[in-house]
Simulated scan of single mutants.
Amino acid sequence: DGSEVTTTNVGEAMDSGDKGMNKAMSAALKYALLHMFLIPTAEEKDPDASTPPETRPKTIAEIADSLDPQNDGVLKEALSQIVAATDKDSLMNVWKSFSEQLQTNPMFTQCMSCRRKELGL
């Protein structure tokens, strides 16, 4: 008979990878069909109703505390000294002290860079 039904729905999804858009589109279609055609379901009201806790990057001190002194003793000491550095000279001293041993360690170089930014250098 030429009749048609048009609907618009918004989908939202939480994904730390590259599938967030696909999940959002699937959710939008699912809920549009469920609501438009009044399809009853026995499933949970909305599995996305609760929000996962927010994650935050660890501080350099938290990273240092989480390291095992037996296996990562040098890195643990270096990170502790990075945290204690209060100016450009003290941070440079940490770099000079540990760069030979840890220059290829990404954790060391990232923490040095973060601390440099924190100090406004």
Rank of each mutant, 00 (worst) to 15 (best):
P52Y: 05
M36V: 13
M36H: 13
K23T: 06
E54L: 14
L29V: 09
H35L: 12
R56V: 15
A49W: 04
A27D: 07
H35F: 10
H35T: 11
F37K: 01
P52I: 03
S50F: 07
E44I: 07
F37L: 10
Y31K: 05
K30E: 03
L38H: 15
I39L: 06
P40R: 05
L33G: 06
H35N: 13
T41V: 09
A24E: 00
I39D: 02
L34Q: 04
N22E: 12
T41C: 06
N22T: 07
E44P: 03
P47M: 14
A42I: 09
A49I: 06
E44H: 05
P47V: 14
K23C: 09
F37C: 04
E44L: 07
D46W: 03
P53Y: 05
D48R: 07
A42N: 09
M36L: 13
R56E: 15
A42F: 02
K45S: 08
A24D: 02
K19N: 14
M36G: 10
P52L: 08
N22Q: 12
T51Y: 15
T41F: 04
M25Y: 10
R56H: 14
L33S: 10
L33F: 12
A42K: 09
K19Q: 15
P47T: 14
L33P: 01
P40V: 01
N22K: 11
A27G: 09
D48N: 08
K30D: 00
P53N: 11
S26F: 08
D48V: 10
A27H: 04
D46S: 03
T55P: 07
L34M: 10
K23Y: 12
T55N: 11
E54W: 13
D46L: 01
A42D: 09
N22R: 12
E54M: 14
R56K: 15
R56G: 13
P53A: 12
A24T: 00
K30N: 00
A28W: 00
M25I: 12
A24I: 02
A32C: 06
K45R: 11
E44W: 04
P40L: 00
A32L: 01
Y31F: 08
L29T: 05
L34P: 05
H35W: 10
I39Y: 02
A32V: 02
L29A: 08
S26C: 08
L34E: 04
E44T: 08
D48W: 05
A24L: 01
A27V: 05
L38I: 13
P40N: 02
L29P: 01
K19Y: 10
G20V: 07
K45Q: 08
T55V: 13
L33C: 08
A24G: 00
K23D: 09
R56Y: 15
A27N: 06
K45E: 07
Y31E: 06
L38R: 14
K45H: 10
A28V: 04
E43F: 05
Y31L: 04
S50A: 12
K19S: 13
P52E: 10
L34A: 06
